[in-house]
């Protein structure tokens, strides 16, 4: 049935590969989490958090490690959707919405367009030594530091609060009216800048394109 639909073989592979990955990692994890919830070790919201967190981290790892650029872009989408789920857990539906719309929709789409237009196939071949080991060392130290730092802090025992939609709008458009306008201008400038940047006058095109 699937073969009748004229899809590229690559797409096929993604579906199958993704399914196997989700199945191999997601199903045992889900079982473990459900069991933990059932025995009362963790609460239900915590379970949701962990699921989302796993999606986020796996997606992020995929995004930074996968050699295929399209795979990386799709992993990024997974991460962003996971983050949106986390926002819901944090009781901010509006931001979750925005996250999915802007990121999951706009930004990723934009990135994919970029991929297509730059004909970028894979992570380019390293020319003179990778700084990956240094980056790894540095990042591990940094994450370690951050975690030590935040764990050493005394946060009390706060609880999450719902953000009232009306209040949020009130604040956004009254107190933060000026920043909003500035951001609007910024967006405008960014778009104009992007246009100007990408637009090539006929005389400064590279020679091959003539």
């Amino acid at each position: 049935m699937l073969k009748r639909i004229p899809l590229p073989a690559q797409f096929d592979r993604i579906i199958i590969g993704g399914g196997i990955t989700v199945g191999a990692i997601g199903v045992p994890l889900g079982i473990v989490l459900v069991t933990l919830v059932a025995f009362g070790v963790i609460s239900a919201p915590e379970m949701v958090f962990f699921v989302a967190a796993i999606i986020v981290i796996l997606g992020a790892l995929g995004c930074v490690l996968l050699p295929n650029i399209v795979h990386a872009a799709l992993s990024l989408t997974a991460t962003l959707i996971g983050v949106a789920a986390l926002y819901l857990l944090l009781m901010s539906e509006f931001l979750a919405l925005v996250q999915v719309l802007v990121y999951g929709g706009g930004v990723v789409l934009l990135l994919l367009f970029g991929l297509m237009m730059t004909n970028a196939q894979d992570d380019p071949v390293v020319t003179d030594g990778s700084q990956k080991p240094f980056a790894f060392l540095l990042v591990s130290l940094l994450i370690g530091t951050f975690i030590t730092l935040l764990l050493s802090g005394d946060w009390g025992n706060p609880t999450a609060h719902v953000v009232p939609f009306e209040l949020f709008g009130e604040r956004l458009f009254r107190e933060f009216a000026l920043p909003i306008i500035i951001v609007a201008v910024l967006l405008d400038v960014a778009i104009t800048g992007a246009l100007v940047n990408v637009h090539t006058a006929s005389n400064d095109l590279p020679e091959e394109s003539e």
């Binding site: 970028a120 992570d123 240094f134 980056a135 990042v139 975690i147 935040l150």
Partner: peptide, 20 residues
């Protein structure tokens, strides 16, 4: 989670070569 995500992102910035 935020710290880990930030760190992974940073790792990506530092180790990747493709601008995108």
């Amino acid at each position: 989670l935020g710290a880990i995500l930030f760190g992974l992102g940073l790792f990506g910035v530092l180790s990747r070569r493709s601008a995108i």
